[in-house]
Design a protein around this nucleic acid. Structure first.
Lengths: 213, 213
DNA sequence: ATATAATCCAAGTAATTGCTCGGAAAACTC
DNA sequence: GAGTTTTCCGAGCAATTACTTGGATTATAT
């Protein structure tokens, strides 16, 4: 099987620059042309390095994509942990809106690249780093839900958790991928949070009894 | 731009068989090896026809995929219209569960092929036939919702419709794609219907007031 | 029965792909 | 400053790709 890790990590500043340039070139190509246009020769050209330099660090094309994905996922995860820290102690409804909006926001920054990677590259969704990040995010929402449960006395059917996190994940992607202005995206994000709350709690956030005592 | 329609339709029974064999061969390859393994030469071999025969009917690889998609989508749409006819006049909650379960079921039949086509082939989600089918399905759920609104006196915020149908579409795909036994899939489908109902109506289907007078 | 149209196909072509080779230059180590 | 390691690179190769060519075979029409 193909190896999805860099065969060598850069040691000097010079090669760190090349390494980064390769990843940035790959991202630019993905954004502009999609995965089908991503050839190793083109990535090298776009990055401004020789093709042999590229193969000095990466064993194959997939490893480039995997490393790019790893970096993007790390950024998302960091963002979401920060968001969680900010949401701790807030009431359930503000907590949900805040987490949702941060999730959409951190994907929307690089929406074209995320779109291509997560929806068009066959092996990316199965990548360990992606599955781990998804699990970490699901765990975070679980903790938000538990807080909410304490405040709201929620029934929490075992099975729903998976479905809700699945629906939420996909909806967040869809909203983040949309090519709309930020105002419209913010509106949709708010609505998404409301629907999520409805799914999880079974009633509207504005309804009586939704605010913790 | 490349043409996504067959360059010629078969006229005799002999060539109809070839035409179908090509599409079935393509589907088999997609199911077994994914889109990356789908080469025109391999499709021809798998279908048991010469490569030139393939190019007699299809101008390029994409047209094969597009025609396969068109056939699958037509089947789904027919299924869903039938399901809608059966759901008409039923109470909202049974109508929703019925439609959801038929949707999942009609995708699950060919789940690997649908999975590859809808999630890994860059141009498929943008194909007119796919977008039209999605629109048709969204229109169907709208009509279910309108019926429900009449029975339940629902508030129907304009914006939610899109989000709900988006979430529902993705969740249906996810549940249909899952590699689980049919009992488990049926459970998840039922839960999905319940969450959908919660999203759309704002309360549980079993709660008082959910049954039409 | 003959002419016309439909259907078939294997061998081949031009272009592109991922990736290697062999070695030069630059940076660290002592 | 000599030796070692790291970094760089473009020409080119083997394999694969989508697709064409030129013609043979089979069905249909008259």
């Amino acid at each position: 099987m193909t190896d999805f890790k860099p065969k060598k990590w850069p040691k000097q500043a010079r090669s760190k620059a090349s390494f980064d340039a390769i990843l940035e070139g790959a991202a630019r190509l993905l954004r502009r042309q999609g995965y089908e246009a991503l050839t190793t020769n083109r990535v090298a050209a776009e990055a401004g390095v020789g093709i042999a330099t590229l193969y000095e660090f990466f064993p194959n094309k997939e490893a480039i994509v995997a490393e790019l994905v790893a970096r993007l996922m790390a950024k998302v995860e960091a963002n979401m942990e920060e968001a969680f820290a900010e949401a701790v102690g807030q009431d359930p409804w503000p907590a949900v809106t805040h987490m949702t909006s941060r999730a959409v926001g951190s994907l929307a920054e690089d929406r074209e690249v995320f779109h291509v990677l997560l929806r068009q590259v066959p092996f990316v969704p199965q990548l360990p780093v992606v599955m781990e990040t998804r699990a970490a995010l699901a765990a975070l929402s679980q903790r938000v839900r538990i807080t909410a449960a304490g405040a709201l006395d929620l029934p929490m059917p075992e099975e729903d958790a998976w479905l809700i996190s699945e629906m939420l994940y996909n909806a967040i992607l869809e909203v983040a991928f949309l090519d709309v202005d930020e105002k419209k995206r913010a509106e949709l994000t708010k609505e998404l949070a409301r629907l999520t709350y409805r799914m999880a709690v079974g009633r509207d956030p504005e309804a009586a009894g939704s605010v913790s005592r």
